[in-house]
Amino acid sequence: MGASVTGERYIQGDIETFQRAVISALVDNESGVLARVVGLFSGRGYNIESLTVAPVTEDGSQSRINIVTCGTVAIIEQICAQLDRLVPVCHVVNLTATGPHIAREMALVKVVSTGEPRTEALRIAEAFRARAVDTTARSFVFELTGSADKLDSFIDLMRPLGLVEISRTGAAALVRGPQTI
């Protein structure tokens, strides 16, 4: 499956389209839950492009796991069904198939440069609304929040300007509107 967002694969003369999916699972916040979820993916050869997890209830009893993966519609449905059968999992939703949803990532991007490349990095950061959270005479660490595509574009523009290091959170996602999962 790889890191490709979309692609085609031929199976018995038919074309199956791979697509990126954001899956959100509400789980009991207990030891070993994340290991079971990740084990389901690795045991079946599914790829996780990004994964975020944190407690989401006031008492800390439940956590939300957001997983970005890719596959055919059938593979994504199978992943959701298998996740939903895990004991500590309370609810699973394929946000991509459900409809409008909000997904955001945060990245820290370190750029080391001087002179014109340094000035250009600052101009691009301003255009992307990235914030310099660390500055030295030769480097910046920019903090940027947005869609995966926005972060990818920013990173691509920083590469020729002295990009040396990246740290990304992965997707945090929720369904739009008053619905909840």
Rank of each mutant, 00 (worst) to 15 (best):
P88Q: 03
A137M: 03
N29A: 13
H101S: 12
Q82M: 09
A25I: 01
G43D: 06
E58V: 12
V68A: 15
I48G: 09
T135K: 09
V56A: 04
E16H: 11
R44S: 04
L108T: 09
T72R: 11
R118H: 01
N94D: 13
R9S: 14
T114G: 10
D59N: 07
D84L: 00
E58M: 11
N29L: 03
A25G: 03
V27K: 02
D134S: 15
A35I: 00
L95C: 02
K110M: 14
I75D: 12
E58Y: 07
G43S: 03
T98Y: 06
V56Q: 06
I11A: 12
V92F: 02
K110C: 08
D134V: 08
T136P: 04
E105M: 13
A125P: 06
L51D: 03
L83G: 00
S63W: 01
V73M: 07
V109E: 15
A127W: 08
S31G: 02
I76F: 08
P100G: 14
G99K: 09
S50I: 06
T17V: 14
N47G: 05
E126F: 05
A21T: 07
P88T: 00
C90E: 15
Y46K: 08
G39M: 02
E30Q: 08
A127G: 15
S31A: 09
S42E: 08
S139P: 07
A107Q: 15
S24R: 11
A125W: 00
T114R: 11
S113I: 03
I48T: 06
R44V: 02
